[in-house]
């Protein structure tokens, strides 16, 4: 976990309800109200999708919904910008390959 629990300016992190979401079927803990991208980053998950042609991995880039590099399959819906979409308990997040037709199996 790499959460900033204490901060010299912002103080201690507020206690927030924890929720469980799944990433490619694996359960991880997220904080209610945070973005999917933040939850994955907090869980040291750095691969969000794989490109169609070159099969390279991508992750959060701009962080404010402009670049679409962080898109994933969320509750079955592909191309969801995870940096501006907030987690919900039980949400299913899947690594997206290309446009989202294939299922990603490689996560270790």
């Amino acid at each position: 976990m790499n959460r900033v629990t204490e901060h010299p300016i912002l103080g201690s992190m507020e206690t927030v309800k924890q929720v469980e979401i799944t990433i490619d079927g694996k359960v991880i803990t997220a904080l209610e109200g945070e973005t999917i991208a933040a939850a994955l980053s907090a869980n040291n998950i750095r691969i969000f999708r794989q490109t169609t042609r070159f099969k390279t991995f991508r992750k959060i880039f701009c962080g404010i919904g402009q670049c679409t590099d962080c898109i994933m399959i969320v509750d079955g819906k592909p191309n969801v910008r995870t940096c501006v979409t907030r987690v919900k308990a039980g949400m299913s997040v899947r690594t997206q390959i290309g446009r989202g037709e294939e299922i990603f199996h490689e996560r270790d």
Binding site: N2, R3, T5, A37, A38, I60, F61, G63, C83
Partner: peptide, 19 residues
């Protein structure tokens, strides 16, 4: 993955409180 804009870094550490 790991190349991000400075703004994304700022969003993560100051809003989401994730390094």
């Amino acid at each position: 993955p790991g190349v991000i804009t400075a703004g994304a870094a700022q969003t993560l550490c100051n809003i989401e409180r994730v390094l």
